[in-house]
């Protein structure tokens, strides 16, 4: 990497690393230290291929997703994630909703990296199933079954969430996908 490339790389890291770190924190279930490790690894790969990539941010995100679910990732030591104690009982209204989100955050942290990654791609990045499959290099069926199992596991991890309607009962969910067929502006 020559001096000019290093300068551009530094500018890229300075402007985009906080946004990338936010995604990494989600992927790591709120574990800030693990997220920094993951981001640093992804950025090393970005630097390795700096000349050959058009969109370094998109590339960094793909690396983040893939290294999160790749098999050798599972061999890394797992960290215990500090999670706020769930409230005893969710009450009605705004406070109840906030408490449910705290519970949900704790439950998300206890999913496997693969399950969490699929949920982040589906519900935070809003990617249709086919695109999630492409990003992760698996089949659409795997994305669908992983999503289903992850949501079911969330309900088991936090029984308070059981009162919520299951996602499968709402056919509207897929229509939120940003697919060119459905959303074409």
């Amino acid at each position: 990497m020559d001096a000019e490339s290093q300068e551009r790389f530094r500018e890229f890291v300075e402007s985009r690393s906080s946004a990338l770190l936010r995604t990494a924190v989600l992927l790591c279930g709120g574990d800030r230290h693990a997220a920094e490790d993951q981001l640093q690894n992804a950025l090393v790969k970005v630097a390795d291929r700096w000349r050959g990539i058009d969109d370094p941010e998109a590339y960094a995100r793909q690396v983040l997703y893939r290294q999160q679910i790749s098999r050798w990732r599972l061999k890394w030591p797992r960290r215990e994630v500090a999670v706020a104690e769930p409230p005893e009982r969710a009450s009605d209204g705004e406070q109840g909703a906030a408490e449910l989100r705290v519970l949900m955050r704790g439950a998300l942290a206890r999913l496997t990296p693969r399950q969490r990654t699929v949920l982040v791609l589906r519900y935070f990045e809003d990617l249709p199933e086919a695109d999630v499959a492409r990003v992760l290099g698996c089949s659409v069926g795997t994305v669908r079954s992983t999503t289903h199992r992850s949501l079911a596991r969330l309900r088991r991890l936090a029984p308070e969430l059981a009162a919520l309607a299951p996602a499968a009962a709402r056919p509207a969910a897929p229509s939120r996908d940003i697919s060119p067929v459905e959303v074409r502006p």
């Binding site: 890291v13 690393s17 906080s18 990338l20 770190l21 936010r22 995604t23 924190v25 989600l26 709120g30 800030r32 920094e36 981001l39 909703a97 449910l100 989100r101 949900m104 955050r105 998300l108 949920l119 982040v120 519900y123 935070f124 949501l151 969330l154 309900r155 969430l161 919520l164 309607a165 299951p166 996602a167 009962a169 709402r170 969910a173």
Partner: peptide
């Protein structure tokens, strides 16, 4: 609210928190 909406909201809320590299 169903479970996927809650996942969405929770992730959005978490992502909006002040995180600085």
């Amino acid at each position: 609210m169903n479970v996927d909406q809650l996942v969405r909201r929770t992730l959005q809320e978490q992502a909006a928190e002040h995180v600085r590299a």
